[in-house]
Simulated scan of single mutants.
Amino acid sequence: MHDSTTSGSTDPEPSADSVVGTIVLWDVDGTLVENAAVPGSLYHLALERTVGRDLEQLVGHQHGRTDAGIILEALRAHGLDPELSETVRGHLQRLSEERYRSGERRTPAPGVMALLQRMTDRGWRSALLTGNSAGRARLKLASAGFDPDAFDWAHSYFGDEDVERQALTRRAAADLRGNRVVVIGDTPRDGTAADAAGIPFIAVATGVHDVDELQRTSAVAVVADCAEGADTLLDAVAALRPLV
């Protein structure tokens, strides 16, 4: 312990963390919370509510896509007007709220809550970079037992209006230059989007893609989950340089 009364003593050099902000951009589904039992079902229900009739489910959930991208693909698959996207998004939000009020709950990914606290203890900020809307992300986090207000919403990025995930990472890179920034996600699409903006990517195999698949991305680290791989993940983030 440093003794401030010692004659001639000097404070240690400031650490990188005290000079540079560290912002960790988390994906939600498959990364912070485990994937739903039937991924994509709410998108189809929202589409049916929009048109007022039953529809054949022609588009399955594509992990790592944005809400806007999944909705647009579903509309096109059924020959429906893309201008209906906003209406579908509204129904999607209301369906998410209904499920939450009915008691439907999600499960946090292994080790992630403890890892978030370790990041907070280091002075790092956890934010979101997700294909969901802000409202749906908040509901998912709350339903899995997270405190949504523990995340930095002012520096979070949401995919309810952007068809391509790269639009989110490019906004993040423009906003956060000068900070140490990393995207943590569970799909190769998370990595591709991070690459497009020059943001480092860390992959966790807690979604539908295994470690071998994720090692074929540009990830600076790949871990099985945030319990087993917590130290590896923290070391990888600490070694990163600020965005320029």
Results as ranks from 00 to 15, higher is better:
Glu104Gln: 12
Leu72His: 14
Arg136Asp: 13
Ala109Val: 15
Asn132Tyr: 07
Gln62Lys: 12
Ala137Leu: 10
Arg171Asn: 08
Ser41Cys: 12
Arg76Gln: 09
Thr206Gly: 04
Arg89Pro: 01
Thr10Asp: 05
Gly123Met: 07
Leu47Cys: 07
Ile70Gly: 00
Ala150Gly: 15
Val33Ile: 15
Arg189Cys: 03
Pro242Trp: 04
Leu95Ala: 05
Glu97Asn: 11
Ala203Pro: 02
Val220Met: 08
Ser7Met: 13
Ala37Ile: 15
Gln215Met: 14
Ala205Ser: 07
Ser18Leu: 10
Thr192Arg: 11
Ala142Ile: 08
Ala37Gly: 06
Ser218Asn: 14
Glu56Ala: 14
Leu45Lys: 10
Thr5Tyr: 12
Val51Ser: 02
Asp160Gln: 10
Asp225Thr: 14
Leu58Lys: 15
Pro39His: 04
Ser156Asp: 05
Phe158Tyr: 14
Ser7Arg: 11
Val163Lys: 08
Ser126Pro: 06
Thr206Leu: 02
Gly90Trp: 08
Asp147Pro: 13
Val24Asp: 01
Leu42Met: 12
Arg65Thr: 09
Val222Arg: 01
Asp190Ile: 05
Arg180Asp: 01
Ala239Ser: 13
Phe151Asn: 00
Ala173Thr: 02
Arg165Gln: 10
Gly185Lys: 01
Phe158Trp: 08
Arg105Lys: 12
Pro39Met: 12
Gly64His: 07
Asp225Pro: 05
Asp190Glu: 11
His91Trp: 10
Leu80Gly: 12
Asp210Phe: 09
Gly60Glu: 13
Cys226Glu: 03
Arg180Lys: 14
Thr66Ile: 11
Glu97Met: 09
Asn179Ile: 02
Ala109Arg: 01
His61Ser: 13
Val182Leu: 06
Ala37Asn: 07
Met119Phe: 11
Asp3Trp: 13
Thr31Cys: 13
Ala36Val: 13
Phe146Met: 05
Tyr100Gly: 08
Gly111Lys: 00
Asp3Met: 06
Ala150Thr: 14
Asp225Leu: 11
Thr5Phe: 12
Val208Tyr: 02
Val24Glu: 00
Pro110Arg: 04
Tyr100Ile: 06
Glu213Asp: 14
Met119Gly: 14
Arg189Ile: 10
Leu116Met: 08
Gly90Cys: 07
Arg94Ile: 07
Ala221Trp: 01
Asp212Gln: 12
His61Asn: 15
Thr192Cys: 08
Arg136Asn: 15
Arg53Met: 13
Ser9Val: 15
Glu161Asp: 10
Val244Thr: 10
Ser156Met: 02
Ala77Cys: 13
Val223Ser: 01
Met1Arg: 11
Pro148Leu: 09
Leu25Tyr: 01
Arg122Ile: 09
Leu55Gln: 06
Thr169Ala: 07
Ala144Val: 09
Leu139Trp: 03
Phe146Asn: 00
Ser143Thr: 08
Glu164Lys: 07
Ile71Trp: 01
Ala193Gly: 05
Pro14Phe: 08
Gly145Asp: 06
Val33Thr: 15
Ala127Asn: 05
Gln117His: 09
Leu168Asp: 01
Gly135Ser: 10
Gly123Asp: 05
Arg65Trp: 05
His61Val: 13
Thr192Pro: 03
His155Leu: 12
Thr192Gly: 06
Gln166Thr: 15
Arg106Cys: 10
Ala167Pro: 03
Val208Ser: 05
Asp29Thr: 08
Trp153Gly: 03
Ala239Trp: 07
Pro108Thr: 07
Gln117Phe: 11
Arg125Asp: 06
Val244Lys: 04
Arg165Val: 04
Asn132Val: 10
Ala172Ile: 02
Tyr157Cys: 01
